[in-house]
């Protein structure tokens, strides 16, 4: 079982790397060298499915960490997926746009990650499966200095990885 999850993960990582808008730094275990074709986006139990079909990220308003109705809809889907795919743990990455000082944004990213964490736990995801991290403004996804980019950078991304007892 553990072996299977890992294989899935490796496949997911490769698929992620090929994706048009990959999260370049969050994927745990990314970079393993083995090949494979299993776990496509059509496989509902694959991390790729989670990322693309369920939606792995929610966006925030400027300076805010409260969840919008769209964010809650996404997180409801994440919670359902996690409840039916208990072999996976998650790391929630909180991010901020570049319009803020470095350390404040680090704290703001942590606040956003925690908002997502609390919601998922409230929906039944075991707290022990959830870790959080903040990158502040250190890892923007979009690099333009306009609101169109900032909006996509103010995000919390749920990164799925193989659980320790998968």
């Amino acid at each position: 079982m553990a072996y299977l999850s890992k294989a899935l993960l490796v496949a997911a990582a490769l698929a992620l790397a090929a994706c048009s808008s990959p999260d370049r730094f969050g994927g745990a275990g990314a970079g393993a060298g083995a090949g494979g074709v299993a776990g496509s986006a059509q496989d509902p139990s694959s991390p790729l499915y989670f990322q693309q079909a369920v939606g792995d990220r929610v966006l925030f308003a400027i300076d805010q960490s409260n969840l919008s109705p769209e964010a809650i809809a996404t997180l409801d889907g994440q919670a359902r997926w996690l409840m039916s795919n208990r072999g996976f743990n998650i790391l929630i990455e909180g991010h901020a746009d570049e319009q803020g000082t470095r350390e404040y944004n680090l704290a703001l990213g942590a606040r956003r990650a925690n908002a997502v964490r609390e919601y998922l736990v409230s929906q039944g995801v075991a707290a022990g499966r959830v870790d959080t991290i903040s990158y502040g403004k250190e890892r923007p996804l979009e690099i333009c200095s306009e609101e169109a980019c900032y909006a996509k950078n103010r995000r919390a991304v749920t990164v799925v990885s193989a659980g320790p007892v998968g």
Binding site: S65, E103, A107, A110, R111, A113, N114, T132
Partner: peptide, 9 residues
């Protein structure tokens, strides 16, 4: 220093 716990710093 700053310490963040449960999203609060």
């Amino acid at each position: 220093y700053s310490l963040t716990q449960g999203g609060n710093t």
